[in-house]
């Protein structure tokens, strides 16, 4: 747990609590529809493809690729020491995309090559919350 963490902290809701409960265990879980079999993210109570509520949470491989990114040179409060830092989109091997930060590598255009393979890691920002981030494989 980092002391003096000043970045925004997510607060789980009834729809997302499984997601954040699993990240705390350093696992990345998303949902899939048992009716049409499609995985999806963000957490929902109905499938965005067929609206079925016959859903299940499953553990992803934690592997993905770099879909796109920007490198922010004007940090928001809490991110001053990180700038310039990449705000990125990872495409999970299971299909869905999510926003993230890229860790374990200097965030430069030379280092960040689209479609490079990434794996999920977790940043324990408090006793209750671990934020998924991604690093090069």
């Amino acid at each position: 747990m980092s002391s003096g963490y000043n970045k925004p902290i997510p607060v789980p809701t009834p729809e997302s609590d499984v997601f954040w409960e699993k990240t705390k265990q350093h696992e990345l879980w998303i949902q899939k529809c048992l009716n049409c079999n499609k995985p999806f993210f963000y957490p929902r109570m109905n499938c965005p493809n067929c609206l079925s509520d016959n859903l299940e949470w499953f553990k992803t491989t934690g592997l993905g690729t770099l879909y796109s990114y920007m490198i922010n040179h004007r940090p928001v409060p809490g991110f001053e020491e990180d700038a310039p830092y990449a705000i990125a989109i990872v495409q999970l091997d299971e299909g869905p995309r999510m926003m993230t930060n890229i860790v374990g590598i200097e965030n430069t255009p030379e280092n960040l090559i689209l479609d490079m393979k990434l794996k999920v890691v977790f940043d324990d920002v408090s006793d209750e919350i671990a934020i998924p981030k991604w690093e090069p494989v």
Partner: peptide
């Protein structure tokens, strides 16, 4: 916000945490 701004909103949970401005 010292200690971090807590946010249950949709962008708060899935985008703000990564330093968007």
């Amino acid at each position: 916000t010292p200690g971090g701004r807590r946010d249950s909103s949709f962008p708060g949970q899935f985008e703000s945490i990564y330093g968007v401005a």
